[in-house]
Structure formats: C-alpha cells, structure tokens
C-alpha cells in the first residue's frame, strides 16, 4: 500500500517536471517592447559588443521541438542539446510540442520569452512549407533564426525495381504518353505534396495523384502495388533499394548527399525541384542579437567535434552543415523565396 503510494508520488513528481516544461507559455506582452530596444542596442554601435559577447546562459535552456520523438528532427535536436550542454555548461532540455507538421509549436512559441532561454528546433521544410501551403501565415521572419545545423539525407523519388522507368525523365514522359494512368502517391500538405505540384505544374507530368499518407504509408502503398511511384525519405527506402525491391530515380536535394555521391538530382530534370530539408534552431521574435550570436557561436563550437561529424555521417549520410547567423538567414530566405514561387499552384 505504502509502496503503491510511493510509486504514485514518484510518477507525479517526474511528470510535474515535464508538465512545468510544457506550461512555459508565459506572458509574452513585453516581447514587443524589447524588440525595438534590442535593435537600438545593436544600432548604437560596437561600443557595447564587448559586453554583448559576454552573454552566457546561467540557467536551463528550453528547446521546444516541433516534431515527435523517434523522428529525425527530434533526434538531431536532442543530439544538439547534448552537445550544447557540454559547451554552455547549463542544462539544455528538449520538450516535444507536436502537431500540424510543427505549426502548433511554432505558433505557441514564436512570441515566447526573448531572454535566450526559450528556443525552437524544427526543420526548414516545415518552416517554409507550412507558410507556402497556407497552413500558417508566418514564416522564418516571425522568429530570430539562430542556426541551420544540419542537412537531411533527403527524399527520393522511387519506383518498384521491376518498373520500366529508370530516370525521372522516363517517368514524366510515360505519364505524358498515357495521362492519368501512373498513380503517384503523396501526402497532401507536406513537402511531398509540394514536390508533386512542381512535377505537375513545372515538369508537365500527368500523374493520377493519390493521397496515401506519411512515409511509412507511402512505402506500404508502393510495396502493395497501390501506387506506381512515390517519394520516400532516403532512410526509409535505403534497405529496399539495397534488397532490389525498389529503385531510386533521383534525390530531391539540390545535390546528392555527401556520402552517397552517385545519385542523380531531380533538379537535373526540373531545375525548380529542390527540397533541401535542413535542421534549424529559432529564437522567439525580439531575442536580442547578442544572445542570438552567442547561441550561434555555441552551436558552431558544439558541432565542430569529431563525435558530431561521426553522428551526422551515420545518421544523415551528410557531412556537418552548420551556418552562422547571416548565412542561416540568407539560406532561409532563399528557401522561402523558392517555396513562395510555388504558391500559385499549391
């Protein structure tokens, strides 16, 4: 009896810790006021930079993760948190706030505390894709981007191994010859949907586009002969390609992953078809520039280790890809402009 209560209590305590993390949606009104203040501080010149660079966290940093545990975005975020703890000397806690391809979390924390202890970790396809498809009405400019810190192994356009098509051109030509007969599996609203829209509207493909669902469901449909072609994360398709059950026509990254250099890129056929999904850390709008800079420096340092390189090589099949603040913003802008150019036919 006592034991049972002790257990109950223990569980309550453990959970209340998590719960506290979750209820961190505190008063956000002052954010708007601090934003101009931060800008003026920045504008008032370099006199303050000595002081500014001295920003060091003294308490726990909370990273709100837009995607669920078990996925690649979560894994990378947690690995980054682990590495950051060593550099910063404070705890870095990752909390998953999931839903709507990350939109729930971003909406909830975009106006969060601007003291540098509240950060958001997500991927760029969710950030720019949700804006392009109209799921949310804000993009990266609603945040202070901190750093792009990795590149995904990408999505590949795949067909069954016994299919007569060997390149993306074959597939598109065949669909033009017999419009509406090639079933192309997608999940509406996400990156794969954007991809299919580009294939149709820019590439001129005439598929019968059918909604199938997430990556696992698309794999299921392709194996079960419910679709003729689809797009899968490389990590999902790899084993089937190796086993000779599927073949990859191309990757949708701008160039093949560093550790798999032999793949063709979709952009060789359709220049606009580039979906570079990167992992990114954001701070709520109005977080002072010196704090953003300090966090970015910490991320650059944390990801410069051999251990990080090994992890990224194994998990993403990529070399480390970490950008400073200016490059991060430029990179996000480029990706947003590209995605926005698709808006008319999404």
């Amino acid at each position: 009896m006592k034991k049972f209560f002790a257990l109950l209590l223990a569980v309550v305590m453990v959970l209340s810790l998590t719960a506290c993390g979750g209820s961190g949606k505190t008063e956000t009104a002052p954010a708007a006021e601090t934003a101009p203040a931060a800008e003026t501080a920045q504008a008032s010149g370099t006199a303050e930079t000595a002081e500014a660079e001295a920003w060091k966290p003294t308490k726990t940093i909370n990273i709100y993760m837009t995607h669920g545990a078990g996925g690649d975005t979560d894994y990378m975020g947690r690995k980054l948190a682990e590495a950051l703890e060593k550099v910063l000397g404070v705890s870095v806690v990752v909390t998953n706030v999931t839903g709507s391809n990350g939109a729930t979390c971003m909406q909830q924390y975009k106006d969060g505390d601007t003291d540098g202890y509240t950060l958001i970790a997500t991927n760029t396809a969710a950030l720019t894709g949700n804006e392009a498809t109209g799921m949310v009405d804000f993009g990266y400019t609603a945040f202070e981007p901190v750093a792009v810190y990795g590149m995904q192994s990408g999505e590949n356009i795949v067909v069954p191994a016994n299919s007569p098509y060997n390149t993306l051109d074959d597939l598109i030509e065949a669909s033009k010859a017999n419009p509406g007969t090639i079933r192309y599996g997608i999940s509406t609203g996400g990156g794969v949907y954007i991809q299919a829209c580009v294939l149709t509207n820019i590439g001129g493909a005439q598929f019968n586009i059918v909604d199938v669902g997430d990556g696992a469901a698309r794999l299921n449909a392709l194996l079960g002969d419910s679709v003729d072609a689809t797009s899968l994360p490389y990590s999902t398709a790899a084993q089937y390609i190796e086993a000779g059950q599927l073949k990859s026509l191309c990757t949708c990254l701008s160039k093949a992953p560093d550790l798999l250099p032999d793949q063709r890129a979709a952009s060789e056929t359709i220049p606009e078809l580039v979906i570079d999904t990167e992992y990114v850390v954001l701070a709520p709008k109005g977080t002072p520039a010196n704090i953003v800079k300090a966090l970015n420096d910490a991320i650059l340092e944390a990801t410069s280790t051999e251990e990080w390189k090994q992890m990224v090589n194994d998990y993403c099949l990529q070399n480390p890809f970490v950008l400073n603040v200016e490059d991060t913003i430029a990179n996000l802008k480029e990706q947003r402009d590209l995605f926005q150019s698709f808006v008319p036919f999404l």
């Binding site: 669920g68 545990a69 078990g70 996925g71 979560d74 894994y75 696992a216 469901a217 794999l219 299921n220 194996l223 990590s235 999902t236 790899a238 084993q239 089937y240 190796e242 086993a243 059950q245 194994d314 998990y315």
Partner: peptide, 30 residues
C-alpha cells in the same frame, strides 16, 4: 516492412532507427 501500426510502434521504429537498425526486408540479414 518498417511500417508502424500505431503511435507506440511508431516510437519503436524511431528507437530502432536511432540504434542503426533499419526495419525492412533485410532486417534478418543485416
């Protein structure tokens, strides 16, 4: 097949992948 049936098995799939075990046709061999 590497296809999770519900939320719990979707987590397990993630757990396997993180430990470099890729569920799928080659899982018994690899």
């Amino acid at each position: 097949l590497g296809i999770p049936g519900d939320a719990a098995t979707a987590m397990l799939l993630g757990g396997l992948q993180i430990h470099n075990v890729a569920p799928g046709p080659l899982i018994y061999q690899k």
